[in-house]
Design a protein around this nucleic acid. Sequence first.
DNA 1: GATGAATGAGACTTCATTCAT
DNA 2: TATGAATGAAGTCTCATTCAT
Lengths: 206, 206, 206, 206
Amino acid sequence: MGRKRSFQPRKRPRQARALLTWNAVLDGAAQVLVQRGYDQATTDRIAERAGVSIGSVYEYFPNKEAIFASLLLRWNEQRWQVFVEARGEDEPASLEDSIRQTIRARLQAARLDPALNTALRRELPLKITQHQAREKHDEFLEVGVSALRGHVKGRRDLALMARLMMHATHAAIEEIGATEPQLLESQQLEDELTLMMASYVRGVER
Amino acid sequence: MGRKRSFQPRKRPRQARALLTWNAVLDGAAQVLVQRGYDQATTDRIAERAGVSIGSVYEYFPNKEAIFASLLLRWNEQRWQVFVEARGEDEPASLEDSIRQTIRARLQAARLDPALNTALRRELPLKITQHQAREKHDEFLEVGVSALRGHVKGRRDLALMARLMMHATHAAIEEIGATEPQLLESQQLEDELTLMMASYVRGVER
Amino acid sequence: MGRKRSFQPRKRPRQARALLTWNAVLDGAAQVLVQRGYDQATTDRIAERAGVSIGSVYEYFPNKEAIFASLLLRWNEQRWQVFVEARGEDEPASLEDSIRQTIRARLQAARLDPALNTALRRELPLKITQHQAREKHDEFLEVGVSALRGHVKGRRDLALMARLMMHATHAAIEEIGATEPQLLESQQLEDELTLMMASYVRGVER
Amino acid sequence: MGRKRSFQPRKRPRQARALLTWNAVLDGAAQVLVQRGYDQATTDRIAERAGVSIGSVYEYFPNKEAIFASLLLRWNEQRWQVFVEARGEDEPASLEDSIRQTIRARLQAARLDPALNTALRRELPLKITQHQAREKHDEFLEVGVSALRGHVKGRRDLALMARLMMHATHAAIEEIGATEPQLLESQQLEDELTLMMASYVRGVER
DNA sequence: GATGAATGAGACTTCATTCAT
DNA sequence: TATGAATGAAGTCTCATTCAT
């Protein structure tokens, strides 16, 4: 709530025309970010790409950082929505099915626009990224823990397991999206990731 | 080989004093990067933090990007060295031991300076980062594949498995270093990651 | 008469509602000027403070300068009216009475809104101020000269005396209003200023 | 001591070349201020007029306001020096001589560059001006009061008298400098002002 | 070599003004 | 007539880079 350098947009637009402009700016920002990087993503270029005057950009966003903070937020919401829809609603039978379902949904989301996703995760200043890091994080964890409960034999640290599985799938998919995006398309990837997590949970005795 | 914007340092210094200055600049860059982010890491601030005049900085580096490219290179070499030393040289008995050894060594490397590592991976322009991404990558893969050979039953895609294991461990550890660095210290983390990879390789029949 | 940049308001409104708006804008301008200075007195802020849309502001004034030119004009008229009323109409008996009456009236006017007055005199661009400087000036002088005539012994330059007295009282009161406005309230100030001017006119022989 | 928007110059230059630049900027600012007014005195124009790059301007001054604050300071010091030198050091015989001496010195200072002086006093934002208002003010008053002591018959408020005399001479001269600068040259003005103050002090009984 | 004053392209941002609704 | 979204010229200021000393 600091006065200057807030990442909050100036105003969420209410009228139709305004909403159009608002989204155009974010679209422009996304394109320029992917093509030229954060450094070169000047507000002028963003405005030009958005087909909007620079004045209009600042009508809605107090500064450059706020543009990208909003873009990241919109992006996260879009991805989350894809993920939720792809996961479906029906209770899966087995833990393995549950895992597969989650991984499939994550992969689905990861296919959305890997280049943009990578640019957002790897070029935006941490100051911007970290603002939104903890969002879905905890919600996710709880779901994971309760899903594990009852499927895990022996004394194991469920919370740690859930965290690890979340981090590992999340990070592995992001990494693949960043370095070998075409691999995201393969069915094999889904199978192998599912296998990795399922066998981990099953906890092979040593 | 491009004329402008080379990321190569002007010269790797050979004399003692010159080397001191060279390293001082990189140290300054590292500190400023962690504390203020890439955007605010101005060459003036780097010079000041390094205790060196701005003119001297440009004696060794042709431009700002070259500073951070060199810093990243130095950092990767340091980490790699820690990793290699921690892994040791003696052939491990079982595949599981081999996995554990690798993971332990990776964790060791990840403890080096998580904040700097995160800043380097997440704030530097991709233009700089990607230059060096493919470095150790392939070397690593080959080692991984040959280590798996002979330990894997059934028909499985060894190359994909190796890639996945590499990505997953690498990315999971990076993620944890970025978001919960204190977790890196726990023995449990090593155990669980080892378990995850080992049970994956052992390939539980479905 | 110039094409661009006229300070003339677009129209002196005749209808009741229009006059209300017109005055509201000037009031808004006055408030913003005092609170934030001319630099920060943006047309948007003025409109907001006036409770009027920016479009409406430009309905009545061709540009920003015209707003403040009009405000200054209105202010000068208000002050002048206060001055004239306070001075009264009855012919004063002595020169000293006449002087006292004038000074008292000037002080009365100076009490009107010292902060606004100061802001208008000291922050507005000279381009705006000078437009209206010569207005009452000469009228005042003539009154002064004819008042002195017959009360001054010896050969003295009546015009210069009148100018000096006008400038001195005017400027001294303005200065006091700007730097120590509370002093304007004191009866003593009236007495002393009167004494200063009266003894000057009486022309003590050296 | 606020972080942003300080009026303090960034650094007082120590080397000869730097001092040259520093003064060139202030000279440029003065010229542009007089010719185009504060609003139009853009930092670019100032740099150009100063024959210096815009970067050099910001090497020494953190923002536009600081430039003019420094200019005002330099100007006040110059004027004060002229005043002090013109007043001379020898103890004047009578109060009247003392008054005349002071007024003569003030007029001398007022002749320095009336246009610049007027622009500085009437166009600079009050925020800048007021910073420096109280400087010489009090020092002056004390001198005035002690000069009056012993020369004033009857019970009179010496402090108020001094304040009034100071304000009146100061303001009258400023006003004349702003509106009729050529009048500053006349010997008559000195005579009349001296007469006004002297007869006031002598306190004619009513 | 080393220094740091100087440079100036270009970044971010504001704000007076217009005009479609 | 009123509104306020949109415009874009122009302002302030930064910072990578150069170069005289």
